[in-house]
Amino acid sequence: MASYKLGHRKTLVLIGYGLTPVGQVLIALAAGWPLLLLGRMVSWFGKGLRGPLRDAIVIQAVSPETRGRAFGFHRAADTVGAVLGPLLGVALLGLAQGWHWDDAVGPFRFVLWLSVIPGALAVLAFLTLVKDPQHSPNPALKFFSSLRGLPARFKRYLGAVGIFGIGDFSHSLLILAATTLLTTSMGIVHAAQVAGLLYVWRNLVQVAVSYPVGVMADRMGHLSILIAGYVLGALTAVLTALAFWFGIDNIALLAGIFFIAGLYVAVQEALEATVTAEMVQPETLAISYGALGTVNGVTQFISSAIVGVVWTTVSPVLGFALAAGMMVAGTLALLRVRKG
Protein backbone atom coordinates (compact mmCIF):
# COMPACT_ATOMS: atom_id res chain seq x y z
CA MET A 1 0.00 0.00 0.00
CA ALA A 2 1.36 3.43 -0.92
CA SER A 3 2.40 5.84 1.78
CA TYR A 4 1.31 9.45 1.98
CA LYS A 5 4.40 11.47 2.88
CA LEU A 6 3.84 14.89 4.37
CA GLY A 7 7.38 15.84 3.39
CA HIS A 8 6.17 16.08 -0.21
CA ARG A 9 3.37 18.52 0.60
CA LYS A 10 5.04 21.61 -0.83
CA THR A 11 5.80 19.82 -4.11
CA LEU A 12 2.19 18.69 -4.44
CA VAL A 13 0.91 22.19 -3.66
CA LEU A 14 3.22 23.59 -6.35
CA ILE A 15 1.84 21.09 -8.85
CA GLY A 16 -1.68 22.13 -7.84
CA TYR A 17 -0.90 25.78 -8.43
CA GLY A 18 0.78 24.93 -11.73
CA LEU A 19 -2.29 23.14 -13.08
CA THR A 20 -4.36 26.34 -12.89
CA PRO A 21 -2.49 28.18 -15.69
CA VAL A 22 -2.43 24.91 -17.67
CA GLY A 23 -6.24 24.84 -17.44
CA GLN A 24 -6.41 28.48 -18.55
CA VAL A 25 -4.27 27.69 -21.61
CA LEU A 26 -6.63 24.88 -22.59
CA ILE A 27 -9.65 27.18 -22.22
CA ALA A 28 -7.95 29.90 -24.26
CA LEU A 29 -7.29 27.37 -27.06
CA ALA A 30 -10.80 25.90 -26.98
CA ALA A 31 -12.96 26.04 -30.07
CA GLY A 32 -15.77 23.98 -28.51
CA TRP A 33 -17.04 22.53 -25.25
CA PRO A 34 -14.71 19.44 -24.99
CA LEU A 35 -11.54 21.51 -24.51
CA LEU A 36 -13.42 23.93 -22.26
CA LEU A 37 -14.49 21.01 -20.09
CA LEU A 38 -10.95 19.62 -20.02
CA GLY A 39 -9.56 23.02 -19.04
CA ARG A 40 -12.02 23.35 -16.19
CA MET A 41 -11.31 19.79 -15.03
CA VAL A 42 -7.55 20.45 -14.97
CA SER A 43 -8.10 23.65 -12.98
CA TRP A 44 -10.47 21.90 -10.55
CA PHE A 45 -7.99 19.06 -10.10
CA GLY A 46 -5.25 21.58 -9.35
CA LYS A 47 -7.42 23.36 -6.81
CA GLY A 48 -8.36 20.06 -5.17
CA LEU A 49 -4.71 19.01 -5.00
CA ARG A 50 -3.30 22.21 -3.53
CA GLY A 51 -6.14 23.25 -1.21
CA PRO A 52 -6.08 20.50 1.46
CA LEU A 53 -2.28 20.37 1.72
CA ARG A 54 -1.96 24.16 1.79
CA ASP A 55 -4.56 24.25 4.58
CA ALA A 56 -2.53 21.68 6.54
CA ILE A 57 0.53 23.91 6.24
CA VAL A 58 -1.47 26.94 7.45
CA ILE A 59 -3.14 25.23 10.39
CA GLN A 60 0.13 23.80 11.70
CA ALA A 61 1.55 27.32 11.80
CA VAL A 62 -1.09 28.72 14.21
CA SER A 63 -2.54 27.90 17.62
CA PRO A 64 -5.96 26.19 18.00
CA GLU A 65 -7.37 29.34 19.65
CA THR A 66 -6.66 31.47 16.57
CA ARG A 67 -7.58 29.05 13.78
CA GLY A 68 -10.73 30.92 12.78
CA ARG A 69 -9.10 34.31 12.42
CA ALA A 70 -6.00 32.77 10.78
CA PHE A 71 -8.07 31.08 8.09
CA GLY A 72 -10.27 34.15 7.78
CA PHE A 73 -7.20 36.30 7.14
CA HIS A 74 -5.78 33.72 4.74
CA ARG A 75 -9.01 33.57 2.72
CA ALA A 76 -9.28 37.37 2.69
CA ALA A 77 -5.72 37.73 1.37
CA ASP A 78 -6.33 34.95 -1.15
CA THR A 79 -9.45 36.70 -2.43
CA VAL A 80 -7.68 40.02 -3.01
CA GLY A 81 -6.33 38.47 -6.21
CA ALA A 82 -9.84 37.36 -7.10
CA VAL A 83 -10.87 41.02 -6.83
CA LEU A 84 -8.02 42.49 -8.85
CA GLY A 85 -8.14 39.77 -11.53
CA PRO A 86 -11.73 40.30 -12.70
CA LEU A 87 -11.30 44.10 -12.50
CA LEU A 88 -8.31 43.87 -14.78
CA GLY A 89 -10.20 41.43 -17.00
CA VAL A 90 -13.15 43.80 -17.37
CA ALA A 91 -10.82 46.68 -18.23
CA LEU A 92 -8.89 44.60 -20.77
CA LEU A 93 -12.11 43.29 -22.30
CA GLY A 94 -13.31 46.85 -22.81
CA LEU A 95 -9.95 47.80 -24.34
CA ALA A 96 -9.81 44.78 -26.63
CA GLN A 97 -13.39 45.29 -27.81
CA GLY A 98 -12.25 48.28 -29.88
CA TRP A 99 -9.59 46.27 -31.73
CA HIS A 100 -10.13 44.34 -34.93
CA TRP A 101 -10.89 40.64 -34.40
CA ASP A 102 -11.70 37.87 -36.85
CA ASP A 103 -14.56 36.64 -34.64
CA ALA A 104 -16.61 37.79 -31.66
CA VAL A 105 -14.72 35.62 -29.14
CA GLY A 106 -11.37 37.31 -29.90
CA PRO A 107 -11.47 39.77 -26.96
CA PHE A 108 -12.42 36.99 -24.51
CA ARG A 109 -9.62 34.72 -25.77
CA PHE A 110 -7.12 37.59 -25.41
CA VAL A 111 -8.05 38.09 -21.75
CA LEU A 112 -7.82 34.35 -21.08
CA TRP A 113 -4.28 34.22 -22.46
CA LEU A 114 -3.21 37.09 -20.23
CA SER A 115 -4.69 35.30 -17.19
CA VAL A 116 -1.98 32.64 -17.54
CA ILE A 117 0.65 35.16 -16.33
CA PRO A 118 -0.58 35.60 -12.71
CA GLY A 119 -1.08 31.82 -12.47
CA ALA A 120 2.59 31.28 -13.31
CA LEU A 121 3.62 34.01 -10.86
CA ALA A 122 1.64 32.25 -8.09
CA VAL A 123 3.73 29.11 -8.60
CA LEU A 124 6.95 31.15 -8.36
CA ALA A 125 5.75 32.99 -5.23
CA PHE A 126 4.83 29.79 -3.40
CA LEU A 127 8.12 28.18 -4.39
CA THR A 128 10.25 31.04 -3.06
CA LEU A 129 8.26 32.44 -0.13
CA VAL A 130 6.47 29.55 1.63
CA LYS A 131 8.08 27.11 4.04
CA ASP A 132 6.35 23.94 5.25
CA PRO A 133 6.61 23.67 9.07
CA GLN A 134 6.21 19.84 8.88
CA HIS A 135 4.95 19.47 12.44
CA SER A 136 3.35 16.09 11.77
CA PRO A 137 4.60 13.34 14.10
CA ASN A 138 3.86 10.66 11.49
CA PRO A 139 5.42 11.51 8.11
CA ALA A 140 4.70 8.08 6.58
CA LEU A 141 1.01 7.79 7.33
CA LYS A 142 -0.82 5.03 5.44
CA PHE A 143 -3.46 6.78 3.37
CA PHE A 144 -6.36 4.34 2.99
CA SER A 145 -6.01 2.77 6.44
CA SER A 146 -6.04 6.27 7.90
CA LEU A 147 -9.24 7.11 6.03
CA ARG A 148 -10.93 4.07 7.55
CA GLY A 149 -9.74 5.12 10.99
CA LEU A 150 -11.15 8.66 10.90
CA PRO A 151 -13.78 9.49 13.57
CA ALA A 152 -17.40 8.59 12.79
CA ARG A 153 -18.53 12.13 13.53
CA PHE A 154 -16.07 13.48 10.95
CA LYS A 155 -17.39 11.00 8.39
CA ARG A 156 -20.93 12.26 9.05
CA TYR A 157 -19.58 15.80 8.65
CA LEU A 158 -18.08 14.84 5.27
CA GLY A 159 -21.46 13.42 4.30
CA ALA A 160 -23.17 16.72 5.12
CA VAL A 161 -20.51 18.69 3.24
CA GLY A 162 -20.98 16.35 0.28
CA ILE A 163 -24.76 16.75 0.20
CA PHE A 164 -24.43 20.53 0.37
CA GLY A 165 -21.69 20.37 -2.26
CA ILE A 166 -23.96 18.66 -4.78
CA GLY A 167 -25.89 21.93 -4.82
CA ASP A 168 -22.88 24.23 -4.42
CA PHE A 169 -22.45 25.19 -8.07
CA SER A 170 -19.40 27.05 -9.37
CA HIS A 171 -19.89 30.80 -9.26
CA SER A 172 -18.83 30.93 -12.89
CA LEU A 173 -22.49 29.97 -13.39
CA LEU A 174 -23.51 32.94 -11.25
CA ILE A 175 -21.53 35.20 -13.60
CA LEU A 176 -23.18 33.50 -16.59
CA ALA A 177 -26.59 33.99 -14.97
CA ALA A 178 -26.01 37.73 -14.56
CA THR A 179 -24.70 37.98 -18.13
CA THR A 180 -27.74 36.14 -19.48
CA LEU A 181 -30.21 38.26 -17.53
CA LEU A 182 -28.55 41.55 -18.57
CA THR A 183 -27.80 40.75 -22.24
CA THR A 184 -31.24 41.70 -23.58
CA SER A 185 -31.00 45.24 -22.22
CA MET A 186 -27.21 45.79 -22.53
CA GLY A 187 -25.78 43.56 -25.23
CA ILE A 188 -23.45 40.63 -24.65
CA VAL A 189 -20.13 42.45 -24.13
CA HIS A 190 -21.50 45.13 -21.79
CA ALA A 191 -23.49 42.50 -19.90
CA ALA A 192 -20.33 40.39 -19.50
CA GLN A 193 -18.44 43.42 -18.18
CA VAL A 194 -21.16 44.18 -15.63
CA ALA A 195 -21.30 40.53 -14.60
CA GLY A 196 -17.53 40.62 -14.10
CA LEU A 197 -17.89 43.68 -11.88
CA LEU A 198 -20.62 41.93 -9.89
CA TYR A 199 -18.20 39.07 -9.31
CA VAL A 200 -15.60 41.60 -8.16
CA TRP A 201 -18.25 42.90 -5.73
CA ARG A 202 -18.81 39.36 -4.45
CA ASN A 203 -15.09 38.98 -3.87
CA LEU A 204 -14.85 42.35 -2.11
CA VAL A 205 -17.59 41.20 0.26
CA GLN A 206 -15.64 38.00 0.90
CA VAL A 207 -12.44 39.95 1.61
CA ALA A 208 -14.25 42.30 4.00
CA VAL A 209 -16.00 39.64 6.08
CA SER A 210 -13.56 36.70 6.08
CA TYR A 211 -11.51 37.86 9.06
CA PRO A 212 -14.53 38.99 11.14
CA VAL A 213 -16.16 35.63 10.40
CA GLY A 214 -13.07 33.88 11.73
CA VAL A 215 -13.04 35.98 14.90
CA MET A 216 -16.76 35.32 15.43
CA ALA A 217 -16.23 31.58 14.93
CA ASP A 218 -13.39 31.51 17.47
CA ARG A 219 -15.79 33.04 20.01
CA MET A 220 -19.13 31.41 19.14
CA GLY A 221 -18.15 28.04 17.69
CA HIS A 222 -16.96 27.17 14.20
CA LEU A 223 -19.66 24.62 13.40
CA SER A 224 -22.53 26.95 14.33
CA ILE A 225 -21.22 29.74 12.10
CA LEU A 226 -20.64 27.26 9.27
CA ILE A 227 -24.29 26.19 9.48
CA ALA A 228 -25.33 29.84 9.15
CA GLY A 229 -23.10 30.11 6.08
CA TYR A 230 -24.75 27.08 4.53
CA VAL A 231 -28.15 28.73 5.02
CA LEU A 232 -26.86 31.75 3.08
CA GLY A 233 -25.65 29.41 0.33
CA ALA A 234 -29.11 27.93 -0.09
CA LEU A 235 -30.56 31.46 -0.13
CA THR A 236 -28.17 32.40 -2.95
CA ALA A 237 -29.46 29.54 -5.12
CA VAL A 238 -33.10 30.34 -4.32
CA LEU A 239 -32.68 34.02 -5.22
CA THR A 240 -30.90 33.16 -8.47
CA ALA A 241 -33.77 30.86 -9.46
CA LEU A 242 -36.24 33.63 -8.65
CA ALA A 243 -34.20 36.13 -10.70
CA PHE A 244 -34.70 33.93 -13.77
CA TRP A 245 -38.35 33.27 -12.91
CA PHE A 246 -39.12 36.99 -12.85
CA GLY A 247 -36.59 37.94 -15.56
CA ILE A 248 -34.79 40.41 -13.29
CA ASP A 249 -32.29 42.66 -15.07
CA ASN A 250 -31.89 45.19 -12.25
CA ILE A 251 -28.22 45.56 -11.38
CA ALA A 252 -28.93 46.49 -7.75
CA LEU A 253 -30.99 43.34 -7.16
CA LEU A 254 -28.36 41.18 -8.81
CA ALA A 255 -25.73 42.87 -6.65
CA GLY A 256 -27.76 41.76 -3.61
CA ILE A 257 -27.51 38.13 -4.75
CA PHE A 258 -23.75 38.45 -5.25
CA PHE A 259 -23.49 40.07 -1.79
CA ILE A 260 -25.12 37.05 -0.13
CA ALA A 261 -22.91 34.76 -2.23
CA GLY A 262 -19.83 36.60 -0.93
CA LEU A 263 -21.00 36.14 2.66
CA TYR A 264 -21.59 32.42 2.37
CA VAL A 265 -18.35 31.72 0.49
CA ALA A 266 -16.40 33.62 3.16
CA VAL A 267 -17.91 31.41 5.87
CA GLN A 268 -17.56 28.19 3.88
CA GLU A 269 -13.94 28.64 2.81
CA ALA A 270 -12.75 29.87 6.20
CA LEU A 271 -14.54 27.36 8.44
CA GLU A 272 -14.87 24.00 6.68
CA ALA A 273 -11.17 23.48 7.31
CA THR A 274 -11.27 24.65 10.94
CA VAL A 275 -14.25 22.41 11.76
CA THR A 276 -12.25 19.54 10.29
CA ALA A 277 -9.33 20.36 12.59
CA GLU A 278 -11.68 20.23 15.60
CA MET A 279 -12.92 16.73 14.73
CA VAL A 280 -9.71 14.80 13.96
CA GLN A 281 -6.36 14.08 15.56
CA PRO A 282 -3.31 16.17 14.52
CA GLU A 283 -1.58 13.18 12.95
CA THR A 284 -4.51 12.61 10.57
CA LEU A 285 -5.03 16.27 9.72
CA ALA A 286 -3.52 16.21 6.22
CA ILE A 287 -5.43 13.02 5.34
CA SER A 288 -8.64 14.59 6.63
CA TYR A 289 -8.07 17.72 4.55
CA GLY A 290 -7.45 15.49 1.55
CA ALA A 291 -10.79 13.77 2.13
CA LEU A 292 -12.52 17.14 2.54
CA GLY A 293 -10.91 18.47 -0.64
CA THR A 294 -11.92 15.36 -2.57
CA VAL A 295 -15.54 15.65 -1.43
CA ASN A 296 -15.64 19.36 -2.31
CA GLY A 297 -13.97 18.90 -5.69
CA VAL A 298 -16.11 15.97 -6.82
CA THR A 299 -19.40 17.45 -5.63
CA GLN A 300 -18.72 20.89 -7.12
CA PHE A 301 -18.10 19.25 -10.48
CA ILE A 302 -21.32 17.25 -10.12
CA SER A 303 -23.27 20.32 -9.03
CA SER A 304 -22.02 22.55 -11.84
CA ALA A 305 -22.69 19.79 -14.38
CA ILE A 306 -26.23 19.25 -13.07
CA VAL A 307 -27.10 22.96 -13.00
CA GLY A 308 -25.58 23.49 -16.46
CA VAL A 309 -27.32 20.50 -18.06
CA VAL A 310 -30.71 21.26 -16.49
CA TRP A 311 -30.30 24.95 -17.41
CA THR A 312 -29.67 23.98 -21.05
CA THR A 313 -32.23 21.20 -21.42
CA VAL A 314 -35.08 22.46 -19.21
CA SER A 315 -34.63 25.88 -17.61
CA PRO A 316 -32.24 27.82 -15.35
CA VAL A 317 -35.04 28.14 -12.80
CA LEU A 318 -35.16 24.39 -12.29
CA GLY A 319 -31.36 24.10 -12.32
CA PHE A 320 -30.86 26.57 -9.48
CA ALA A 321 -33.93 25.27 -7.63
CA LEU A 322 -32.41 21.78 -7.58
CA ALA A 323 -29.16 23.28 -6.29
CA ALA A 324 -31.07 25.06 -3.52
CA GLY A 325 -32.78 21.80 -2.52
CA MET A 326 -29.46 19.98 -2.13
CA MET A 327 -28.01 22.88 -0.15
CA VAL A 328 -30.95 22.82 2.24
CA ALA A 329 -30.56 19.05 2.67
CA GLY A 330 -26.85 19.49 3.41
CA THR A 331 -27.58 22.20 5.96
CA LEU A 332 -30.06 19.94 7.76
CA ALA A 333 -27.51 17.12 7.78
CA LEU A 334 -24.93 19.48 9.28
CA LEU A 335 -27.42 20.45 11.96
CA ARG A 336 -27.73 16.76 12.88
CA VAL A 337 -23.93 16.53 13.10
CA ARG A 338 -23.93 19.42 15.58
CA LYS A 339 -26.67 17.85 17.68
CA GLY A 340 -24.85 14.52 17.62
Rank of each mutant, 00 (worst) to 15 (best):
87 L>S: 04
47 K>F: 02
7 G>P: 11
273 A>F: 00
31 A>Y: 13
103 D>I: 08
330 G>A: 13
166 I>Q: 06
292 L>E: 04
81 G>D: 03
309 V>C: 00
270 A>W: 04
155 K>E: 01
279 M>L: 14
69 R>T: 06
71 F>M: 15
277 A>H: 02
249 D>S: 15
302 I>Q: 07
156 R>G: 08
6 L>F: 13
104 A>G: 00
333 A>L: 10
98 G>N: 13
108 F>Q: 01
117 I>E: 04
22 V>A: 08
314 V>S: 01
85 G>L: 10
334 L>A: 14
323 A>S: 15
85 G>K: 02
250 N>C: 05
168 D>C: 11
258 F>L: 09
137 P>T: 13
214 G>V: 02
116 V>L: 12
7 G>R: 11
264 Y>A: 01
234 A>P: 07
171 H>E: 01
265 V>F: 12
187 G>W: 14
292 L>D: 03
75 R>Y: 05
276 T>D: 14
200 V>H: 06
18 G>V: 11
299 T>V: 14
333 A>Q: 10
175 I>E: 02
95 L>C: 04
152 A>D: 09
325 G>A: 15
63 S>T: 11
290 G>W: 04
255 A>M: 13
300 Q>R: 13
234 A>H: 10
293 G>N: 05
230 Y>K: 01
53 L>H: 01
326 M>R: 04
76 A>Q: 06
97 Q>Y: 12
335 L>Q: 01
143 F>G: 09
337 V>R: 03
197 L>S: 04
259 F>Q: 04
68 G>V: 00
146 S>T: 15
10 K>T: 10
328 V>W: 08
259 F>N: 07
224 S>D: 10
130 V>K: 00
177 A>E: 02
